[in-house]
């Protein structure tokens, strides 16, 4: 039996496409968790990264925080939060946000810090204020790297959101966890395929966003 057989069987079963346990519902749940976590993480990490990168200070502290956050095992944290906080979104959000913050934070900081200093000097010399320098000069140039940090975070969040099912939440992980319990490999493999597909869709999404928002003058060499 190859996994392709399972995949085929899973997707051709019409019953998998409807109802509270249907694929559309699970995908929406999964996206909900993922984007919520990503939004919170970006809300924390982007401003901090932009400001520290702009001023060029606090790099070592950031590196330390990022290393510590990275050391936290997401799966373990999820189970622990489940014990402490019970069933709900919060225990899922904590490990997902902890997972997404380091890549966004570190890349944003580095992206802004490593912007070529001479246009920044020119901009200040032309009479641009600090906010204009950050948003009109530094940010557009730093954008590709910042987006790659966000993309990396998004991929990891989408992957890890699958384990939310382990603590009784929905999302595509539901198929994998339930299937494993029921020893129903068709569902397990089908769920896993969907998760992988969603992660790949994230790559495509970020590629598209980059095409749209990054100036061709910056995109060169990619």
């Amino acid at each position: 039996m190859s996994i392709f057989h399972f995949i085929n069987a899973f997707f051709s079963d019409g019953s998998h496409w409807h109802g509270y346990d249907g694929i559309p519902t699970r995908i929406m749940e999964h996206l909900q968790y993922s984007f919520m976590a990503l939004g919170i993480a970006a809300g924390i990490a982007l401003p901090v990264g932009l400001i520290t990168g702009h001023t060029g200070r606090g790099g070592n502290a950031l590196a330390l925080i990022a290393t510590a956050a990275r050391a936290l095992p997401s799966f373990g944290l999820l189970v622990l939060m489940f014990f402490w906080l019970g069933i709900g979104l919060t225990p899922v959000m904590i490990p997902l946000v902890a997972l997404a913050v380091p890549p966004i934070l570190v890349t944003t900081y580095e992206a802004v810090r490593t912007v070529d200093p001479s246009p920044v000097d020119a901009a200040r010399g032309m009479g641009m204020g600090p906010a204009a320098v950050l948003f009109q000069v530094e940010l557009p140039v730093a954008l590709p790297l910042i987006l790659s940090g966000l993309r990396s975070a998004a991929i990891q969040v989408v992957s890890t959101a699958a384990i939310a099912a382990y603590v009784s939440l929905g999302g595509l992980g539901r198929y994998v966890i339930d299937g494993l319990y029921q020893r129903n490999y068709e569902i397990v493999v089908g769920g896993a395929t969907l998760i992988a597909g969603l992660a790949l869709a994230m790559i495509a999404l970020f590629w598209l966003v980059e095409r749209l928002v990054v100036s061709p003058g910056v995109r060169r060499g990619r």
Binding site: G59, N60, A63, P102, P103, V106, T107, E110, A111, T114, V115, D116, P117, S118, D121, V141, P144, L145, S148, G149, R151, S152, V218, R219, R220, G221, R222
Partner: peptide, 24 residues
């Protein structure tokens, strides 16, 4: 704790960075 090492850690997190602007 050189900067080049930290810079490299970014690459490791995100994959390769866009061609970097020439440093001044």
């Amino acid at each position: 704790g050189s900067r080049s090492a930290r810079r490299a850690s970014v690459d490791a997190v995100t994959g390769p960075a866009p061609e970097e602007a020439r440093p001044l």
